[in-house]
Write a protein that binds this DNA or RNA. Sequence first.
RNA 1: GCCAGCAUAGCUUCAAUUGGCAGAGCACCGCUUUCGUAAAGCGGGGGUUGUGGGUUCGACUCCCACUGCUGGCUCCA
Length: 728
Amino acid sequence: MLKVILPNGSAKEFPQSVSIRQIAEGIGPRLAKAAIAGEVDGKVVGIDTRLPDSGEVKLRILTKKDPEALAVMRHSAAHIMARAVMRLKKGAQLAFGPTVEGGFYYDFQMPEPLREEDFPAIEAEMKKIIALDEPFERIEVDRNKALDICKDLGQEYKVEHISTGLAEHPSLSFYRQGEFIDLCRGPHVPSASAIGAYKVLSIAGAYWKGDANNAQLQRLYATAFFSQEDLDEHLKKIEEAKRRDHRLLGKQLGLFAISQEVGPGLCLWLPKGAQVRSQLEEFIKHELRNRNYQPVYTPHIGRIQLYQTSGHFPYYMDSQFPPFYLDPLMQDTQHLFAAHFKGDVNDQKFVDIFEKSSADFQKNFGVSSFLGFGPASTVEERKVAIMHWFNEQEAYLLKPMNCPHHIQIYRAERRSYKELPVRLAEFGSVYRFEKTGQLNGMTRVRGFTQDDAHLFCMEEQVAAEFSGCIEMTQFVLDCLGLTNYRVRLGFRDPASDKYVGSQEVWNRAQASLEEVCTRLGMSYTAEPGEAAFYGPKADFVVTDCIGREWQLGTVQLDYNLPERFQLEFVGADNKMHRPVMIHRAPLGSMERFIGVLIEHFAGAFPLWLAPEQARVVTVSEKSEEYARGVEQKLRTAGLRITGDYRPEKLGAKIRDAQLELIPYMLVIGPRDAEQGTVSIRDRLDGDLGAMTPDAAITKLQAEITARTFRKTFSGSAGLEVKGGENEY
RNA sequence: GCCAGCAUAGCUUCAAUUGGCAGAGCACCGCUUUCGUAAAGCGGGGGUUGUGGGUUCGACUCCCACUGCUGGCUCCA
């Protein structure tokens, strides 16, 4: 006897095994027709799934109204898209085709590359397939049979996946629809007609199982909805989001530029962008003072030995600008040294290659031997001589991180336990050589400035200091109305050996990190494998306007650098102890943070951040003299103000100021000049009427001090809808 | 780095029949207008069509290489 409990609490009993479809039919023919899938005890399954013949289950029958059904339908749509591609292009190999947020994709290996111009044909073929309205038929087989099926189909990726990724699964399932059969966990919609409106969106490269060592596949992105209206709305949303893109707004509003001549990934802060940044930096500096940090300054480069000690070199070699050496021989042999440090070259080979390049160098530059090898010297002796020479080299690296410099500041004096924690803060510029394909506007650059700080404390202070860092990050994000973030605790991947430091030290760090997050009541996800090589961390991750995630603020515990640099302090027992370090940056980098901020505010910054807070616009040139006086008065009061005195009509000047997203306009005509007033105009609320310049100053200053969020707009720069309701 | 696509004036607004004189709009400059809350009128300057080669009588257009940019590169069958 099976007892089925439905969402409304009612229960039905069945004497023998029954499918979800049969239960739906029992409830009503309309429900049976509308059913897309079922949910049994919280697990989404196909409509033809048979329930056990005894016990008790909770059952939901999912229809178009249920969000879970959409994912099922999209997955089915992915199959249909794959089927369409298989029909159009012979010899396509199938890889993965999952549902993702906002749609789905399918990875193929194509004999001929797919192109965007193939999309209409694919969509047309999908239409034909859907018109057939064939059912999705589930076929369950054992592993060996599954392997045979995939081999027969000639689907090599499926064969590989069954033998590796699915090695633990004794029984596997396929779904068949017409001539198309695909290894698939399911579930699927009952038949093709359940698929509503769909669109193939884009094509991209993707590696098999995400590993760059594997074959590069072609990934076809698409989306599907139950109704055309939902699809249209989705596409419209994508379009609107694109208009918020910080790269577009950054150019339109004159915030930043990236010039080919300066170099890719190198950001030029235009005056207005620099103004926003400077304001944000002031804000952070104020918070640092309140929290007893000490500002420091350090240079942009450091000797390579410093980074060998820290472990950044050659560990991060691939993502750094190459070091520069004062000795020209080193320019030629630096790759050799890097390979040697990484263990890619053994001692004998290292000596051989070095001596050859050294000989070439001497031939080319006419310099005599400078290492002084005797003919009888051993490999070991030569290696020692070479390494000794290397360590004497004057070589510099553009700093990829600020910590080694800050550590040297810590070491500049003997530290007592009484002065801990030491908190050293700097807006430190760092350089990292990101791969070209990773660069993205301001959110991924090669040179950036972190709102960095390093805390040196005793082990028993870690929890309090960590807590303080998290609290500051939360405070800063709150002040900007950035609420759409998640906290990710990056932990060590137990299976990997890329980490510096002992497992025991890591466990301690991770435990205390988790403890603090729990105490602060933060929701977080613990993610093994996401840690930095030197310690676990808490990352604040936000989502940009087109759904990409970016790591902003970060707090990282580090038990390893103090060890590497032999940091010490004198304890109460008059003995030497090792401090613990915390790296933290609430904003992360100024570049990325402001990039995200531009999208968050859609370019319409709150008054306290706005590069131009107000603009005087004259009705005609008659009032220019008075207007200039007002402008200067507000400037002297500390407001960022400009004046538009062009011989344009008022409407044109207002329009220009609106498009530049300037929060306030001070309209001045003969009437104002006569009465000693200004007509204040809010960018969104329009004309607020006349007031004295002093009253305007008071009003604006109050808004600045309160750091009020302003409305942005529900459109884009240039397409603003008046009275937009996007309240932040 | 890799896959696909793109590159015309300051502009992520774009045009240029099959290979046949590179053209608009916005912005900029000048003149007229002196104006009260989202675009006044007229005139003007601005280009080695991303860079370098090639094919051709002739290349923005076709071919090759390079540079830069855009989308993407495991929320597993």
